[in-house]
């Protein structure tokens, strides 16, 4: 797994590669929380190169999606791999979490 972040203006995008299992979900939560404490308006989680997403990872995405939305800001999944798309679809959170282009 690798996790990197690019911030441009008031947007921040995280690029997650490989397996998003329990420990990676915890790491992602720490990084997302740090980003939320900055003035960014939009946070994107790019999962185009992720191939595994556990329920803990989905909980992180959903929890901070809801928190950002309540503050008038946005946290969305910007891109998905086919594997991640399948997992989000079967949990019923795909339409909520994935950015509509």
């Amino acid at each position: 797994m690798s996790l990197s972040q690019i911030t441009r203006g008031d947007e921040s995008e995280f690029f997650v590669k490989g397996r998003v299992d329990g420990p990676v979900a915890n790491q992602l939560e720490v990084e997302v929380l740090a980003a939320i404490r900055t003035p960014v308006r939009r946070i994107y989680i790019n999962l185009a190169e992720a191939n595994f997403l556990c329920s803990a990872g989905i909980r992180v995405l959903l929890q901070y999606h809801r928190k950002m939305k309540a503050e008038g800001r946005e946290l969305l999944v910007s891109r998905t791999s086919p594997e991640i798309d399948q997992i989000l679809e079967l949990t019923g959170f795909r339409d909520t979490l994935v950015e509509k282009i």
Binding site: C54, R59, L62, L90, T91, G92
Partner: peptide, 24 residues
């Protein structure tokens, strides 16, 4: 079982792991 038909903005996220196990 998780209620996947409920409003996704307010639906509890508990039970997601077992739901995934059932579906997969």
């Amino acid at each position: 079982p998780a209620d996947v038909a409920a409003d996704p903005d307010s639906r509890p996220v508990g039970g997601l792991g077992v739901h995934m196990m059932r579906k997969l």
